[in-house]
Computed example of a mutant assay.
Amino acid sequence: MKILLTGVNGQVGWELRRTLATLGEVVAPTRAQLDLTDAVALRSFVHEVRPDLIVNPAAYTAVDKAEAEPELAHTINAIAPAVMAEAASQINAAMVHYSTDYVFDGSKPGAYLESDATNPLSVYGRTKLEGEQAIIAAGIPHLILRTSWVYGLRGGNFLLTMQRLFKERDSLNVVNDQFGAPTWSRMIAEASAQIIAQRPFPDNSGIYNLTSAGNISWHDFAQAILARTTLPEGKQVALGAIPAAQYPTAATRPVNSVLSGSKVQKTFGICMPDWEAALDRCIES
């Protein structure tokens, strides 16, 4: 199998380059080699490579910045997937695309199912939903994998930010009324490879949630990271809990970002680890 992988320097893309290597030839262009904002060049690149499968973790993920750059977010999160899906239909390729809990408004009291109505609250959420819709409309064999609260050992994410702040500050306040499942990028990549290895197309095409099991608040996640962070001798950090209303952001976040993993487990036998076990493995690595 020949696989075209985008976003190779991102959190998930970096991990996918390793896990997908066992499945075939991976073509993984950098941003300099493949500009997702150039639709003509993107279409031409897909036709030149002629992959059997396009795996697209690339995205505009600066949630707050997207409120000020809606056109750029739309270009990368909606138009680029649409172009890839259209090109895939012309060369009989399948596509795996990564999406987000931000397609929901967070008002549901329980875990979200793939079939629940979407209602994004932000530019980021809306553009990611538009990307999903474009892939589905193209009629190609596809998997849309929705994940949440992604972290890892590279790039910009909550884990690395907290580890840095704990060493710089003596006190820190973190939001305690938004809930989700922190998900290690490596777990996403490993589960993706296991799914793709099952040759899911076209019979099992569709949307699947792919997050860690369990759920916590951002404050609880910060506490868990602090407990696993080695601080300078004698240093202590006071970790306070505040409501989201006291931490205003440009983009509105869902209160509830918990996604049910029942469908991916039933269809592919994928049982994602509990968030805390995954965090332990991440830090140990």
Rank of each mutant, 00 (worst) to 15 (best):
K2E: 04
I3D: 04
L4Q: 02
L5G: 07
V8M: 12
N9D: 15
G10C: 10
G13L: 09
R17D: 12
T19D: 11
A21M: 09
V27R: 03
P29I: 05
Q33T: 11
D35T: 13
D35N: 15
A41C: 04
H47W: 12
I54Q: 01
A58L: 11
A59M: 09
T61D: 10
K65P: 10
A66K: 06
E71Y: 14
A73E: 05
T75R: 14
I76G: 07
A80Q: 05
A80R: 00
V83K: 03
A87G: 04
A88M: 02
A93E: 12
G106T: 03
S107D: 09
K108Y: 11
P109W: 07
A111Y: 02
S115K: 12
T118A: 00
K128Y: 06
R146T: 06
V150N: 08
G152C: 04
G152I: 00
R154M: 14
R154G: 15
N157H: 00
F158I: 09
M162E: 08
E168R: 14
D170V: 14
L172F: 00
G180W: 00
W184I: 09
S185E: 10
M187L: 13
M187D: 15
E190Q: 12
A191N: 01
A191H: 04
R199E: 11
R199H: 15
P200L: 07
F201Y: 04
D203W: 04
S212V: 04
S212F: 00
A213D: 14
I216Y: 07
S217I: 05
L239C: 02
Y247C: 09
A251S: 13
P254V: 05
V255R: 00
G261N: 15
V264S: 05
V264D: 06
Q265L: 12
K266C: 07
M272D: 02
C282D: 02
